[in-house]
Simulated scan of single mutants.
Amino acid sequence: MTLSGALYQTKVVNRDGIEGKTYVDEKEGFEVAVSSPMSERKGTNPEQLLGMALATCLKATIEAEETRRKIDHLSQVSVKVELREDTLGYQFVLETEISMPHLSKQEAGSILEVALRRCPMHKLLKGNATYQVHLI
């Protein structure tokens, strides 16, 4: 299935569950070992992958705005992901911190405001009570 108007499309497959491998189904795709965060088994997990996706997407969007404004790329995005129990099983809680120490609080806030409007991962997560973004 091709999404109408898609600029990029990929397919990620997991046949093994939480103890096995997940791979990108493309010619030059890659494979990663996955394991439960509660396990001693080596491998990444959904919490880490979600955090990496959000941190990378938001940082790239901030960089695009920094480039537009001709500002050096010295910002940093960190995402803390927690797995918590809830009434129906589990939920992720994400706390995102953005640091732009090279900029005034006002300019950093202005860049972040634009980035949050543009970042696809933020658009996906915003409105969730378990997702927060802080400019530090």
Rank of each mutant, 00 (worst) to 15 (best):
M1V: 09
M1Y: 03
M1N: 07
T2D: 04
L3D: 07
L3M: 10
G5R: 07
A6L: 09
A6P: 00
A6W: 00
L7A: 14
Q9M: 09
Q9A: 14
T10N: 10
T10S: 14
V12D: 01
V13H: 02
N14E: 12
R15Y: 05
R15W: 04
R15S: 13
D16A: 15
D16E: 15
I18M: 09
I18G: 02
E19R: 12
K21V: 13
T22M: 13
Y23C: 11
V24Y: 03
D25F: 01
D25K: 07
K27I: 15
G29K: 06
F30Q: 06
E31P: 01
V34W: 00
S36G: 08
P37Q: 08
M38P: 01
M38C: 05
S39D: 05
E40Y: 03
K42C: 05
G43V: 06
G43F: 04
G43C: 08
T44K: 03
N45I: 07
P46V: 11
P46D: 10
L49M: 14
L49K: 03
M52N: 11
M52A: 12
A53S: 14
L54E: 05
C57T: 08
A60Q: 04
I62C: 03
I62Y: 00
I62V: 13
E63R: 06
E63F: 05
A64D: 07
E66R: 10
T67V: 15
R68H: 10
R68S: 14
R68N: 12
R69Q: 15
K70F: 04
I71Q: 04
L74G: 15
S75Y: 01
Q76Y: 00
V77G: 03
V77N: 00
S78D: 12
V79T: 10
K80H: 08
K80D: 15
K80M: 12
E82H: 05
E85F: 06
E85N: 12
D86F: 03
L88Q: 10
Y90C: 08
Y90R: 10
Q91W: 00
V93C: 06
V93A: 07
V93L: 10
E95Q: 13
T96E: 04
E97D: 10
E97G: 04
I98M: 05
I98R: 01
S99W: 01
M100Q: 05
M100E: 01
P101Y: 05
L103M: 11
L103V: 09
S104Y: 02
K105Y: 02
E107Q: 14
E107F: 09
E107M: 13
A108I: 11
A108Q: 04
S110E: 10
I111D: 01
L112P: 01
V114C: 06
V114Q: 06
V114H: 04
V114Y: 00
L116Y: 02
L116M: 14
R117T: 14
R118V: 12
P120R: 15
P120N: 15
M121Q: 08
L124N: 09
L124T: 15
N128W: 00
A129I: 11
Y131W: 08
Q132M: 09
V133A: 03
I136G: 09
